[in-house]
């Protein structure tokens, strides 16, 4: 795998077009599953994965080999996912503020548009889990989410997060407890 990676890196750096396809084929599955676990939505996972690969392609010259190529790729993937989650949370806050002021209603009335259906694709269960996961600090969310994806070992998660395996175990157990507590609170509120 390392030799394959070295070959891909060299070719990518020299601008070989075929290397990009090889890169996709080697990592598409893992990157896609990672994005999917963060968003629990196929379309979002596909869009984000594409952004990840474009980012890899654009910043391949900054890869100096200090870490494994796969670790570098998954770091980019996680950073992209977290950035997108933060962007959406910001948007949600703005939307709720707009809703409070009825700005959307006025805009729709002026433009003659229709209010979009909210979270039409998202299953209720997944929505509740996402709500609970959104309350976790970044480090806990990363460790917990990656630990639930097939193929990621604690050692690999530690490498990605630049920490120790013990710290990862601690983060996962804390995240599990906090997510459980949050889910309980959500379910109590809904009932």
């Amino acid at each position: 795998m390392k030799n394959d990676d070295d070959h891909i890196i060299q070719k990518l750096k020299s601008g070989d077009q075929s290397a990009f396809y090889a890169l996709i084929k080697s990592y598409e599955n893992r990157v896609m599953q990672t994005c999917y676990k963060f968003f629990l939505n196929k379309e979002d996972a596909e869009d984000l994965s594409q952004e990840v690969f474009l980012e890899i392609f654009q910043s391949i010259h900054s890869f100096r080999g200090n870490s494994k190529f796969s670790t570098w790729i998954y770091r980019i993937t996680i950073t992209k996912c977290l950035d997108e989650i933060k962007r959406r949370n910001r948007k949600k806050r703005i939307d709720s503020f707009k809703q409070m002021l009825h700005i959307d209603d006025v805009t729709n009335w002026i433009t003659g548009g229709v209010m979009p259906d909210k979270n039409i694709h998202q299953h209720d269960n997944m929505k509740q889990i996402l709500m609970a996961l959104n309350t976790l600090p970044d480090s806990q969310r990363i460790a917990f989410t990656l630990s639930k994806i097939e193929g990621y070992t604690n050692k690999e998660i530690a490498e990605i997060m630049n920490t120790t395996t013990n710290a990862v175990e601690l983060l996962v157990s804390r995240a599990k407890k906090k997510t459980g507590d949050e889910l309980k609170a959500i379910l109590k509120n809904n009932s």
Partner: peptide, 14 residues
């Protein structure tokens, strides 16, 4: 809660 957690863990791969 346990059901939701196990659902999250066992989400089908895409």
């Amino acid at each position: 809660v346990n059901q939701l957690m196990s659902e999250f863990e066992n989400i089908e791969k895409i």
